[in-house]
Simulated assay, not measured.
Amino acid sequence: MSERLDFYQVLGVLPNAEPPVIRAAYRALISIYHPDRNQSTDAIIRTKELNAAYAVLGDSAKRAEYDKSSEPTRTKANILEFEEKQPFQEDPLEKDWKVAIEFYPDVQKHHLDLEKISWRLAFTFKIKILQSQEFKDSQEIAAQLKHDYLCRYFGRNADIVIYAENIIKAREIEVALYLNNVIGVMGKSVDIRSIRANINNKFPSLARKLEGRRLFQQIFREPWNVGDAVAATQLISLHGGKVEQRVFSSKITLHLHDKTFKFNSSYDFCKFVKGEFSSKYA
């Protein structure tokens, strides 16, 4: 077995996962890949990796030694860290999870938010919630897991952490890895303004994409308000469109992609804009 394996990545959990989470992750994944159930070549390899990972992380002394030896590289991100989709189709936790979200639907909302950053982050959250049964505290648990995860790779400056989260959710993974490297080299010696300037210069299309996502997320925030129409108008402008509305009139005319659309209300206008850009920003 290669010593280069990241055992935490193998088990799909975070380096600060508690022992019960480590155990539950191993049992869940081994149920998918064990040769008694899955005889594919990939399953045999994955089973060996899972057994090797659990042999170390399931033993407190071996885990402490492993953590100490891998500490110098623990804050160095790789592309696997920011994968959205879990590598297995059959989720052994799904049956219990469906029961949980019937009673606490917000738990699923927190899970999906974490999944936009990393499936491992979301997987750790799912296991932790099911193990602890702390469903009422799911928002705080998700927030803490996300905070610890992002801080490990991007430092503890709150503005930089938020910036990193937006970059990852925009699926600009090359930029996220570059930012991780910058933080690793520069540490606390750089602030958010100098980092933004550097990244915008190196990745010219990023600022526009992040601004588009920000405006899109403002549309139809609860409760509905006139600011949603302002955000929708700015989003249209960002994409070269034009919005016309007479004073004291609820009717709106939109020119976009060489087409003209007419709406009787701001709500209908926002609904159209959100649908138009959902595949790009949702």
Rank of each mutant, 00 (worst) to 15 (best):
Leu112Gln: 10
Glu102Cys: 15
Thr124Ile: 13
Val99Ile: 12
Glu71Ala: 13
Glu65Ala: 03
Ala64Phe: 01
Lys62Arg: 08
Lys128Ser: 05
Glu81Leu: 13
Gly58Met: 05
Phe88Arg: 11
Lys95Val: 15
Phe123Leu: 07
Leu57Trp: 00
Lys68Asp: 12
Lys68His: 12
Trp119Gly: 02
Pro87His: 12
Glu65Asn: 01
Leu57Gly: 01
Ser60Gln: 06
Glu90Ala: 09
Thr75Gly: 10
Leu114Gly: 06
Asp113Trp: 03
Asp91Cys: 09
Gln86Asn: 09
Leu112Pro: 08
Ala55Ile: 00
Lys68Gly: 12
Phe82Lys: 07
Phe88Ala: 14
Arg63Ala: 03
Asp67Lys: 02
Lys128Trp: 00
Trp97Arg: 01
Trp119Leu: 02
Glu115Trp: 02
Lys128Ala: 02
Asn51Glu: 13
Leu114Pro: 12
Ser70Gly: 04
Glu71Cys: 04
Val99Pro: 08
Ala61Thr: 05
Ala55Thr: 04
Lys62Asn: 00
Lys98Trp: 08
Glu71Tyr: 10
Ala55Arg: 02
His111Val: 02
Ala55Asn: 07
Ile129Asn: 00
Glu65Lys: 00
Val56Ala: 01
Lys116Ala: 09
Ala77Lys: 09
Val99Gln: 12
Leu80Asp: 15
Asp96Gly: 11
Gln89Leu: 15
Lys98Ile: 14
Asp91Val: 09
His111Cys: 03
Ser60Gly: 05
Gln89Ala: 14
Pro105His: 04
Glu83Ile: 10
Asp91Glu: 08
Leu130Arg: 06
Ala100Trp: 12
Leu80Cys: 12
Ala122Lys: 04
Pro105Asp: 10
Lys85Ile: 14
Phe103Leu: 11
Ala100Lys: 08
Pro92Lys: 03
Trp119Tyr: 04
Ala52Val: 03
Glu115Gln: 15
Pro87Gln: 12
Asp96Gln: 15
Ala122Asp: 05
Leu130Asp: 09
Pro87Glu: 14
Asp59Thr: 01
Phe103Lys: 13
Leu93Thr: 12
Val56Met: 01
Leu112Ala: 06
Glu83Gln: 13
Leu50Gln: 13
Leu114Ser: 04
Pro92Ile: 11
Ile101Met: 08
Gln86His: 08
